[in-house]
């Protein structure tokens, strides 16, 4: 591999990894606070991409599509949490089974509303074209993916560390009982984190739209990648989700370039290795007994 090609692949891995981070962050924080894996997270991503497509078609405004789709899906997440999860408070396994049921519902609804043929979001005109990096072309849009992913990561970090809400969320991840004992309504924060997670996933769906598109089966494909990220990086921390995403993004990109036919296996091999060597993930905070 030439130097230029190598750098392009690094940038590709980075942009893909940061896209995955948008999903993994929500997945990981929801788990940290509520103790459940939201299996409908990939569906949020897919719904985001489809909704973004529809909004973009009617308004031709990428920013509106981005914010609109993410807000709609965040509302959906909020309704799911309020209506369905509240009824199963503290029954984590049942809540996970519930999210699994919702995958079927969203999958079929998306197929009904948007059909079965793969769709693609248009690249916003401002971000079309490509840059030249050491003589090789690199799309401007992917650079925008990197920048926006990094910006979201930074904002999330500031939110969690500097705001009162963020502090309570971090405290809740550490010790839910103690937070409740301090007369804080933890259930409110369940709603906040659930909606935030859904927002980020759908945001990712629209951002990834011009590169990955939207098609049936995308929900599960992206869910499995996000699960791989949290297995590799560890659950419950932003840091784990961030570095896990970057690592999985690199592994996926480089294996696609090096051995295309069986590239998908490398992610699972990485997962298996992590499980053997460090079952709680590279930066996980959950200690496994």
């Amino acid at each position: 591999m030439e130097v230029a090609q190598f750098i392009i692949q690094i940038l590709n891995g980075l942009s893909y990894g940061l896209l995955l981070f948008l999903l993994a962050a929500g997945l990981s924080l929801i788990f940290g606070l509520m103790g459940i894996i939201n299996l409908a997270h990939g569906s949020y991503y897919m719904l985001g991409a489809y909704l973004g497509l529809t909004i973009m078609k009617t308004s031709a405004n990428f920013i509106l599509a981005l914010v609109g789709a993410a807000t709609l899906v965040a509302l959906l997440g909020l309704i799911m949490e309020r209506v369905f999860f509240r009824g199963l408070y503290k029954q984590e396994l049942d809540q996970v089974l519930l999210t699994f049921g919702f995958i079927y519902i969203f999958m079929d609804l998306a197929k009904y509303l948007w059909g079965g043929t793969p769709r693609s979001l248009p690249t916003p005109p401002l971000l079309e074209g490509s840059l030249e990096i050491f003589g090789a072309a690199f799309p401007v849009y992917r650079l925008a993916l990197i920048v926006s992913g990094l910006a979201v990561a930074l904002l999330l970090r500031l939110f969690l560390e500097k705001t009162r809400t963020g502090m309570i969320i971090r405290a809740g991840v550490d010790d839910k009982e103690m937070v409740t004992a301090l007369a804080i309504n933890i259930k409110l924060y369940f709603s906040i984190i659930f909606a935030l997670g859904a927002f980020l996933a759908a945001f990712g769906g629209v951002m990834g739209g011009p590169v990955i598109g939207a098609y049936p089966g995308l929900d599960f494909e992206i869910l499995v990648l996000a699960l791989a990220v949290v297995v590799v990086g560890g659950l419950g921390t932003l840091r784990g989700a961030f570095w896990g995403s970057i690592l999985v993004g690199f592994i996926d990109t480089f294996s696609k370039a090096l051995f295309p036919s069986f590239s998908m296996l490398t992610i699972y091999i990485a997962m298996a290795l992590i499980l053997i060597l460090k079952p709680s993930g590279l930066l996980g905070r959950m200690e496994l007994s």
Binding site: F31, I36, I37, V96, F220, V224, L227, Y268, P279, L288
Partner: peptide, 28 residues
């Protein structure tokens, strides 16, 4: 040997992921 190293949340994530791996393998 792999999936039983973990429990609860990790167990379900990993079984799900490896199931999908076999699906992809059969496809490819």
């Amino acid at each position: 040997l792999l999936v039983l190293r973990s429990s609860d949340a990790y167990f379900l994530m990993i079984t799900l992921a490896f199931g999908q791996m076999l699906y992809a393998l059969a496809w490819r």
